[in-house]
Amino acid sequence: MSCQKCSEKFILKNDKGVIFIISEVEELLKKSTSFLQKLSIDYSNKNGLLVINVTNVKAFFSENINRFKEYFNELERENIKIFTADDENSFNYLTVLKAKTLQKYINLFDDQDFFDVVNNESLTVHFQPIIDIHTDKIYGYETLARGVNEDGSLMYPDILFEKSKRNDYNFKLDRLCRESALKTAATKKVHQKVFINFIPTSIYDPEFCLNSTVKWAKQLEFDPSQIVFEVVETELVKDQVHLKKILEYYRSKGFKIALDDVGEGYSSLNMIIELRPDIIKIDRNIISGIDQNELKQSVYKALFNLARENGITVLAEGIETINELKMIKNIGVDLAQGYYFAKPASEPIRKI
């Protein structure tokens, strides 16, 4: 069982259909009417609902998408909604909920590479090793998703999630990334801990939204204690009660919890106190050049002491030089990650 947010494919039919245009703003309906009249597009107005019958839905948008962009400004495009269906009788109150903004339809063309990646589930996973400083062995791997374009080139996370966010696809993409990480780690026979990022704002009900992730972990015979879920974008989480509910669900299944980018967001210290993660990952902005910056050393030392006093493991990420490594070792650290050891790679590095 899944929700529309996690399973939808936003595509346009290459066939005949009906296009409905709606808006809560009366002036925008009038402007939409003028737009259709200007282009000599046949339509009917049914109590403020503009209805257009077309012989090919995809061709209609393909031919007119640039005209939409020129005629309506960005604010207007966000307040005009469109729904496509097979026939006029398909429109009901549910279609109002499923209708997408005109801007989303424009994005469908501008971000076609993104939609191809997600709708076809064309993801690959790279692994970056995490080192146990006490043993100098690989403790685990952070899994990092990349989209695979049709030409074989990669779409990196910053672009992937930027396009996902503006198209309201984080629910689906986040689930795909979690599941791809588990499947790929199993295929690559990774026996160390597997760190998997997740966006808490893409989960509205943990038992429902995370069911498939738990299912795959069991099916692939992972020991839950070997999987660490990293909370990312913590500074965007307004509802800490909801986030704690998500983490409690993960913990009830035996998984570990890491808090990412600690020291970057203004609420990091509060997050540590409230969430009590198993691991904190100290942000690379603090680690970078720490050997030459006494203020960064003080901040790192405070975070390390707070974690140590509360039984939390400290992971320093973004280490790029031997001097940075020496400094954090001198202050104190449990785990380390960064280009100094290895860059993310499609094949997990087995030994440092």
Rank of each mutant, 00 (worst) to 15 (best):
C3G: 14
C3Q: 13
C3N: 14
C6F: 07
E8D: 12
K9W: 00
K13H: 10
V18Y: 00
I19A: 08
I21S: 08
I22S: 12
I22L: 14
V25I: 15
V25R: 14
E26N: 14
K31M: 08
S32F: 09
F35K: 08
Q37A: 06
I41W: 09
S44F: 07
S44V: 14
N45I: 10
N53T: 10
N56A: 06
R67S: 15
E70W: 06
F72I: 05
L75M: 08
E76R: 04
N79W: 07
K81R: 15
I82Y: 05
T84R: 01
Y93K: 15
T95S: 14
V96R: 13
V96S: 08
A99I: 05
Y105M: 06
Y105L: 07
F109Y: 15
F109L: 05
F109I: 10
D113K: 12
F114Y: 13
N119S: 05
N120H: 12
S122E: 11
L123Y: 12
P129H: 11
I131T: 05
D132M: 08
I133H: 05
Y139Q: 08
E142V: 08
R146I: 04
G147M: 10
N149Y: 15
S153T: 15
L160N: 01
L160W: 02
F161G: 02
K163C: 04
K165F: 05
R166W: 02
L176A: 00
E179R: 14
A181E: 00
L182E: 02
K183N: 06
T184N: 03
A186L: 03
K188L: 03
K188H: 11
K193L: 07
F198S: 03
I203A: 03
D205H: 11
E207V: 13
C209H: 15
S212Y: 11
Q219N: 13
E221V: 07
F222V: 05
P224S: 09
Q226K: 15
I227W: 06
V228E: 02
F229T: 07
F229D: 03
V231P: 01
L236T: 12
V241K: 15
K244I: 01
K245M: 12
L247N: 04
E248L: 10
R251C: 03
K253C: 11
E264Q: 09
G265M: 10
L269T: 08
E274L: 13
L275C: 12
R276Q: 15
R284P: 01
I287K: 01
I290C: 04
L295N: 13
K296L: 09
Q297C: 13
S298L: 13
K301S: 15
K301H: 14
L306N: 04
L306E: 01
E309T: 12
I312R: 02
V314F: 09
L315F: 05
N323A: 12
L325Q: 07
I328V: 15
I328R: 02
V333W: 02
V333S: 03
L335R: 02
Q337L: 08
G338I: 04
Y339R: 04
A342M: 03
K343W: 02
R350S: 13
